[in-house]
């Protein structure tokens, strides 16, 4: 046994090791995203987007839930602006992730920030966030993030392509109720969040406003519902823990 403690950690992981570990640690989430990508591809092939549009959308947008919502909006004949604005609202949650990872990005060159921002998803954030909370001075952590992002990206593209091919080969598949997969996914994401305090009030408000405003043009009902839900959440936070003035994080 070596008796002399080394001044720095013996082997700070190299670039390729970090990259590989990032991809490896994302593996369970890749499996979770697979059916999602498959279903997106299949639904897209039966939508106005078509087989030809499925892969470009996955390659350029790379945001699963927004892509699903875009499909249902396009199916109901929504305009370009409505789809883009809805995407904006649905993806706002990524601001939270970006804010949380920001300190790690400040020391990287811009090209790295661009790449890692493009690959920032719910899954990669979950993986990377975990990694960043332990040993803080590893020099090539951004390679870990890149490994996770690259794995998610290739996984998403692959399953989108497979789904589009499957949907085109047997169009009957999409009439088998795949459209319910979106609902099942969203319910699965939201239900556990309702246990935390204002979650239920936020959800009930959003649901009530969405139902009341469902016939408004331009999907305004959805926008109003999202805003009302968030407003109620903020109001309840304020009542529960009054005046977070001067609070430092």
């Amino acid at each position: 046994m070596d008796s002399i403690p080394s001044p720095s950690p013996p082997h700070p992981a190299g670039r390729s090791t970090e990259f590989f570990h990032g991809a490896r640690d994302t593996l369970p989430l890749l499996l979770g995203a697979a059916p999602f990508g498959l279903i997106f591809g299949a639904l897209a092939s039966a939508s106005p987007l078509g087989v030809a549009g499925a892969l470009p959308m996955s390659a350029l947008v790379f945001a699963g839930s927004a892509q699903f919502i875009a499909l249902s909006l396009l199916g109901s004949g929504a305009s370009v602006l409505v789809v883009v604005f809805t995407t904006l609202v649905v993806n706002l949650r990524h601001l939270l992730y970006a804010a949380s990872l920001q300190p790690q990005m400040a020391r990287l060159p811009q090209r790295w920030r661009v790449l890692l921002a493009f690959w920032l998803t719910d899954e990669t954030f979950a993986t990377v966030h975990h990694r960043y909370t332990r040993d803080d001075d590893a020099p090539f952590k951004h390679w870990y993030t890149a490994g996770s992002g690259a794995a998610m990206y290739l996984n998403w593209l692959g399953w989108t392509a497979a789904g589009a091919w499957l949907g085109a080969a047997s169009p009957a598949l999409t009439h088998l109720g795949l459209e319910f997969a979106l609902v099942a996914t969203f319910v699965g994401i939201v239900a556990p969040l309702l246990r935390e305090r204002p979650g239920m009030a936020v959800a009930l408000t959003a649901a009530a406003v969405a139902l009341a405003g469902r016939d408004l043009p331009y999907k305004l009902g959805l926008m109003l519902a999202a805003c009302a839900g968030v407003a109620v959440g903020v109001w309840m936070d304020g009542r529960r823990r009054p005046a977070p003035v001067g609070e430092t994080r």
């Binding site: 969203f186 968030v230 903020v234």
Partner: peptide, 16 residues
């Protein structure tokens, strides 16, 4: 804090 409520509000408004 406000952003934290976005996923629940948006996803519920879509699904319900």
């Amino acid at each position: 804090q406000a952003l934290r409520h976005v996923p629940v509000a948006v996803l519920t408004a879509i699904v319900v």
